[in-house]
Design a protein around this nucleic acid. Structure first.
Ligand code: FES
Ligand code: FES
Lengths: 147, 147
DNA sequence: TCATTAAAAGACATCTATATCTTTTTTATT
DNA sequence: AATAAAAAAGATATAGATGTCTTTTAATGA
């Protein structure tokens, strides 16, 4: 797995909030779980973490829900990865059991370095806002449907 | 995780057998588990699968153990991945819950396509024999030690 | 103050990858 | 044939990721 399910849920969740934000309203978990076809309470934990890390805002009570934080659209994808998956995969040897290092490289070191650093660079430069700008016509469908 | 622990164990296991093969002898599980610092019985299952898939030979009984198959060194890395991790990660959308497809691409489709296809190409062309040819001075250490 | 709404928090269940332990099968040697 | 060696197979255990359910806290409006 390149990325966990949690990461996918997190990204889809925050993008959904951002989309609905343009309609000028907040989003509740029930709506998100329903529209995104994501387990309600599992998503709740992930959303809560994003709020805790300052990626999103939330308010409790009537008319409450999730809304954008001023930093939301500026958030790098790598921050989401850190939040859901951690960064170990980027500095641990692909053969496990050791830190990746150049001095005593494992047989796959150079190959994996290229791949991992490519992904790291991509995710370190791209923001959530970038994804929304590049969005394709069926964007909402692309984060919602199963098929 | 780009690749599972099982994959790491499999690769280190088969490379160890190949190295010892040059000394003209077979390798037993006890020696491998000890030298590679890998859980004995967990490694056993993985080795058994590699034998079943024709990546390695094995013989039971006294003076038995694991040895090279004529196809071992020609085996592509991707075959090992298929054996331990399966190929789902290469055709499933990074946002889970759907097959990856170009018609209704998710927000990360193009980015991930590049990364995944890069890794797929690398692992589809490189063989176990290639890894042994490229080997660095501390090769045995690089698949054995923890530090 | 009370009722309602919705997130936060916590407890528990399930599933998968990983790890350990035991028994069975096969092979070689005596 | 009996013994020993080693892989194969199977049963069980543990940990982490994922999923579900219940209780608590905070906000709103009557
Ligand atoms: S040492 Fe193995 S990936 Fe760097
Ligand atoms: S559609 Fe998501 S990775 Fe291709």
């Amino acid at each position: 797995m390149f990325l966990s399910k949690s990461f996918g849920y997190a990204l889809r969740g925050v993008l959904y909030v951002a989309l609905i934000h343009k309609e000028g309203r907040k989003v509740q978990l029930d709506e998100m779980a329903d529209k995104l076809k994501v387990p309600r309470h599992f998503l709740a934990k992930i959303m809560k973490n994003m709020v805790k890390e300052g990626v999103l805002n939330s308010t409790k009570g009537p008319y409450g829900g999730f809304s954008l934080h001023e930093s939301t659209l500026k958030t790098k994808l790598i921050s989401l990865v850190k939040l859901t998956d951690g960064m170990a995969q980027f500095n641990t040897c692909v053969l496990s059991l050791r830190k990746c290092n150049n001095e005593n490289p494992c047989p796959l070191h150079l190959n994996m370095l290229k791949i991992r650093d490519g992904m790291l660079a991509e995710f370190s430069s791209k923001t959530l806002g970038d994804l929304l700008d590049e969005k394709n016509p069926d964007f909402i469908k692309s984060i919602s449907t199963i098929a």
